[in-house]
Structures are given as structure tokens and as C-alpha cells.
């Protein structure tokens, strides 16, 4: 079977999230959304930012896409993390996740604010996979920009 390094990349929480795909299924109504494609592997995601009536709190993300277990797990874990969060807090969490992904295996000081998504730390050791993990988070940034532009 795989090495310990591989096991830290594919932790149980990640493999489960990649199958459960929390948030999978787009809403029929119009929400700020964004589409991201990784042209090297064909992984793609379309993500909607669904908020409460005030627009200040995330109700739940909705997304559809296809890709490797890392990109699918990341989208699922992002959905779990952001449900109920103030929209104003999203940029900080996304920034923290990006920092974690760019840490080349070193991790970051405090990954508590990332919840279960911190389990994706193992990805940062595999440079070719960072883009997979970032796909949904980049789509959320895009959706927020669309939201701000409205």
C-alpha cells in the first residue's frame, strides 16, 4: 500500500469528503457564481454563493463539478466550513487556506479557522496538486467578486 506521505495526502476525512460532496447540486435560482477550470487535467467547478436575505451571512455554498479526489474533497470541506459564516470573514479564511497550500508541507501556525479543511495540509507537499485543492476556493473568490460588482 501507500507510503506515510501518501497517507497524509489522502487522509480518511479527505477521501470521505470527496465522496460525500457536501453542497453538490446547483440551485435553480440566480446567485453570485463562478466557474473554474484547471486546463491541465480538466477538473472544473461551478460554485454559487448562497446567502441569507441580508446578503451578509453564507447560507450554504452550492456547486457542481468533476475532478480528482483532492478537488472534490476541498469543495466539500469548503462548503462545510463556510455554512453560516459572515460573508465578510470569507476573504481571511480563503487567504489562510492559500497560505497553508503554499507552505510546502510546513503547515501554518494556526489552522484552527480552517476546520476540517486543514486536513488538506498534506497537499502542500505536492506542488502539482495545490491547484486541485484551490479550485473551489478560487471559485468562491470569483463568486464574491461577482457579488461585489452587483
Amino acid at each position: 500500500m501507500g507510503s506515510p506521505e501518501l497517507a497524509s495526502l489522502y487522509q480518511q476525512v479527505i477521501l470521505e469528503a470527496s465522496k460525500q460532496k457536501h453542497g453538490f447540486g446547483l440551485r435553480p435560482e440566480d446567485h453570485p457564481s463562478n466557474h473554474q477550470l484547471n486546463p491541465t487535467c480538466g477538473d472544473e467547478i461551478t460554485l454559487q454563493l448562497v446567502t441569507d436575505a441580508s446578503g451578509e451571512t453564507v447560507e450554504k455554498l452550492a456547486w457542481e463539478g468533476q475532478g480528482c479526489s483532492i478537488s472534490m474533497a476541498s469543495a466539500s470541506l469548503l462548503t462545510d466550513l463556510t455554512a453560516g459564516l459572515p460573508v465578510a470573514e470569507l476573504p481571511e479564511r480563503i487567504g489562510l487556506f492559500r497560505e497553508l497550500m503554499q507552505s510546502k508541507g510546513a503547515g501554518i501556525e494556526d489552522d484552527e479557522p480552517l476546520g476540517d479543511a486543514a486536513a488538506l495540509e498534506g497537499v502542500s507537499r505536492y506542488i502539482a496538486r495545490v491547484k486541485c485543492a484551490m479550485l473551489a476556493w478560487t471559485a468562491l473568490e470569483g463568486a464574491m467578486m461577482e457579488s461585489a460588482a452587483k
Partner: peptide, 13 residues
């Protein structure tokens, strides 16, 4: 059921 990237990662290991 397994994306090619994950297959490749397993073999690279």
C-alpha cells in the same frame, strides 16, 4: 471511480 490524477499520485508514490 478514481480520477486519473489520484491514480498517478498513487503510482508516483
Amino acid at each position: 471511480g478514481v480520477h486519473a490524477h489520484d491514480v498517478g499520485q498513487y503510482l508516483d508514490d
